[in-house]
């Protein structure tokens, strides 16, 4: 994002809408702040009072279990009051505009919106039009961005691999429709990864994908060579009916990750997936549940990372350890 909608006058995080426009030091600050929260889950009392008295509204215009739950837990562990609304089945189906929905909730004195929406740009739109004291966190907008997912994945990678500058990362699957992919690519490039690759058939790659700063592969085995981190993407079933792919089985054959294909990557490569996974479509169970998989670690890290982002956006910079 060219404009500094996300940052306040002091250059601090105000909204978290996209990785674009955020520099390495800010991303690193998010990771460091998340680090300070990570030990909390093992404690008897899993709470800090950083956002006590604040009201956070999770506005989910699109279904989600994992993201909504981790945001909710993150808010609760920061001692905020949290309300989750599924709008897919609420007022918008009665014809209320997005802006009217936001205005009505604003009138209830909330401090933060966590927004998921099926249309690209929805979180930006809300951030641009909401009251100035409210922070907006993008929990996924259309095919545009899912920046908290990217940050929790960066956190997971850093936990295991430490240094980004030597890492070669492959993002595999439906890049075209994936907000996760766009945010991961931006985050990896900002943090200085040695190489980011995308591996997919042409039907699942957006036009001029190389302009995102990636090298492009259409062959999984070739693309996996020397790779340290594998990020698999979920394949929606409807891609088959819109003639983007012939069949699930053919996709699995070409781009599905199984134990044999995993051997083409570095022996210590880790396998990630933002979930929910389609076993036997993009990933074989033996890999998803195997020793190189960090999929569940990603989920756990989601809470700490989202706590960090929420706290920072509310100008409460983490815990002093």
């Amino acid at each position: 994002m060219a404009d500094n909608l996300q940052l306040n006058d002091e250059g601090k995080l105000k909204h978290f809408l996209t990785i674009e426009g955020l520099d390495k030091s800010l991303l690193t600050e998010i990771l460091d702040t998340a680090e300070s929260f990570i030990g909390m889950s093992d404690q008897q009392v899993k709470k800090v009072p950083l956002l006590r008295g604040k009201t956070i509204v999770n506005l989910f215009f699109e279904n989600s279990t994992r993201t909504r739950t981790t945001f909710e837990l993150a808010a609760k562990r920061l001692s905020a009051d949290v309300l989750s609304i599924s709008i897919a089945t609420s007022s918008t189906s009665k014809g209320e505009s997005l802006l009217d929905t936001i205005r009505n909730l604003e009138a209830m004195f909330v401090d933060m919106f966590v927004v998921r929406h099926a249309i690209s740009g929805a979180a930006h739109f809300i951030a641009r039009h909401t009251a100035p004291h409210i922070s907006v966190i993008n929990a996924g907008d259309g095919q545009h961005a899912h920046p908290t997912q990217a940050m929790l994945d960066m956190f997971t990678i850093r936990q295991i691999k430490s240094d980004f500058s030597s890492l070669k990362v492959a993002v595999i699957g439906d890049i075209l429709h994936s907000r996760v992919a766009r945010s991961e690519i931006l985050a990896l490039n900002t943090l200085g990864a040695a190489e980011v690759r995308v591996i997919a058939p042409k039907t699942l790659l957006p036009a001029h994908v190389e302009t995102l700063g990636v090298s492009v592969y259409h062959n999984l085995m070739e693309g996996l060579k020397d790779i340290d981190v594998i990020i698999m993407l979920r394949l929606q079933k409807e891609r088959m009916t819109s003639a983007l792919l012939p069949s699930e089985s053919e996709y699995f054959k070409c781009f599905g990750l199984n134990e044999d294909k995993l051997k083409y990557a570095k022996p210590d490569a880790i396998v990630m997936h933002p979930g929910p996974i389609n076993r036997g479509v993009e990933i074989d169970s033996k890999v998803a549940d195997g020793p190189q998989s960090v999929i569940l670690k990603q989920v756990s890290n989601g809470i700490a990372t989202r706590m960090a982002i929420m706290a920072m956006a509310m100008q409460k910079p983490g815990m002093t350890s």
Partner: peptide, 15 residues
Amino acid sequence: HEGAMATRYGLPGLP
């Protein structure tokens, strides 16, 4: 426009 900007912002492209 189906180009670099649409790709970056995840907007449905018109070729």
